[in-house]
Computed example of a mutant assay.
Amino acid sequence: MNDQPYQVPKAMVVFEEEIKKSIFITYLARTSSVDDAKAFVAEIKAKHSDARHNCWGFVAGRPEDSMKWGFSDDGEPSGTAGKPILAQLSGSGIGEITAVVTRYYGGVRLGTGGLVKAYGGGVQQALKLIETEEKRITDTVILHCDYNLVSLVETLLSQFEGIQVDAQYSDKVVMSVELEKRVIEEFKIAIINKSGAKIEFPSDT
């Protein structure tokens, strides 16, 4: 599994435009799973149940994980809506994102080229409006240490931008910490070296 961080949407954005009397409304939102993506699509479809089409595409995980991609033309000619929407999303480098483009038909046909441009273009414009934040891939590490070494753990935890999740105090301190996956091994080596191997990671034994 890829442990590198990636960008995800901070908040939903909406972009609306009129093309040859048809109204196109593009919604972009963060959806962290395929189920979340489908729920968001259903929400927008319910909101615009009177629209002619609610076409959509999603990237429901890491940007490059095509196993979590999906799209639908929702009644538009095949390949004119869902694929252009997904192409914009997958090319954006943003993960956990769903686009729904609602169309209120205005009576003028756009043709296949016009539809591709309208659906893809709406998502492209909406992507320019979106703010993103970094999603870090983390894991929990459990360590055992003597009381006099707690401050060392806290210092190194701060250096590696980790957080303490839990601590239990008995004859030793049992601490659970959360760190970015890509720095866990480096963190463990630093802890072992600086403590003279007095701090233990029970899951490694």
Rank of each mutant, 00 (worst) to 15 (best):
M1K: 06
D3L: 09
P5Q: 03
Q7Y: 15
V8Y: 07
V8H: 02
A11Y: 08
A11C: 09
A11G: 13
V14K: 07
F15C: 14
E16Q: 13
E16K: 08
E18P: 05
K20L: 09
K21N: 08
S22E: 02
S22A: 00
S22I: 00
S22P: 07
S22N: 05
I23A: 09
F24D: 06
I25H: 13
S32H: 09
S33L: 01
D35M: 12
K38Y: 04
A42V: 02
A42D: 11
A42N: 08
E43Y: 12
E43D: 06
A46G: 10
A46K: 08
K47T: 12
A51P: 04
C55R: 12
W56K: 12
F58N: 13
F58E: 11
A60R: 08
R62M: 14
P63I: 06
P63A: 11
E64P: 11
D65A: 10
D65Q: 10
S66R: 12
G70E: 00
F71A: 11
F71P: 10
E76I: 04
P77G: 02
P77I: 00
S78I: 11
G79Q: 03
T80A: 06
A81M: 03
K83Q: 12
L86G: 00
S92K: 01
G93K: 03
I94P: 13
E96A: 03
T98Q: 09
V100N: 10
T102D: 03
T102V: 11
Y104G: 05
Y104V: 04
G106Y: 07
V108N: 13
V108F: 07
V108S: 15
T112G: 07
T112Y: 08
G113N: 01
G114T: 00
A118R: 03
Y119V: 01
G120I: 01
G120R: 06
G122F: 06
V123E: 06
A126L: 12
L127N: 06
L129Q: 15
I130G: 14
E133V: 15
E133M: 14
T138A: 02
T140S: 05
H144R: 11
C145E: 08
V150C: 07
S151W: 08
L152A: 01
E154H: 09
T155V: 13
S158Y: 10
F160K: 06
G162F: 01
G162P: 01
I163H: 07
Q164N: 09
A167E: 13
Y169D: 01
S170C: 05
V173S: 08
V174M: 09
K181F: 02
I184G: 05
F187Y: 05
I189L: 15
A190C: 04
A197Y: 08
A197R: 15
I199G: 07
E200V: 12
E200Y: 14
P202E: 05
